[in-house]
Design a protein around this nucleic acid. Sequence first.
DNA 1: ATTAGGG
DNA 2: CCCTAAT
Length: 167
Amino acid sequence: MGNNEFVSTPQTPVNKVIDGADPDSKALVPMTPVNVDALAVVPVNPKPKRNELSQRRTRRPFSVAEVEALVAAVEELGTGRWRDVKLGAFENADHRTYVDLKDKWKTLVHTASIAPQQRRGEPVPQELLDRVLSAHSYWSMHQSKQHGKHPVEPIKPVDRPDEIVRA
DNA sequence: ATTAGGG
DNA sequence: CCCTAAT
């Protein structure tokens, strides 16, 4: 959808310019010539920004099940296609936007890097945190070059993250 | 509309 | 979670 919506006002057939330089002008203040057409089209809906009035979304801690889905999705799609991760694993989770998923991955990588004692909320299974770090390092190297128009790539086995190295 | 990172 | 510069 286009975010640039405009509204056009009826064109002025005769007076295209309102000139204040009129000798017979009774204007108290000199008026600079102004082109009416320039004001004919004014942008409406500048940008539905979020002012300090709008309330921010209520917090919604990710469940372990959600983390599992997120990790699985990133393991095969990488960390540069949150749109696809959203569509592929959170299709019907209206409160989870692809930005939310991207943010969650960021916190997960951090969580996996700190001591269990400083983590908060329902503990995330170490097994998942291991996969997070594994996928994180994996996709750090295989920086997918161009984001060509892929129809949600058919998962290439060779591109999947390696299992945790534990001899 | 998405991506990518800092706030 | 939010904000937003770049794409």
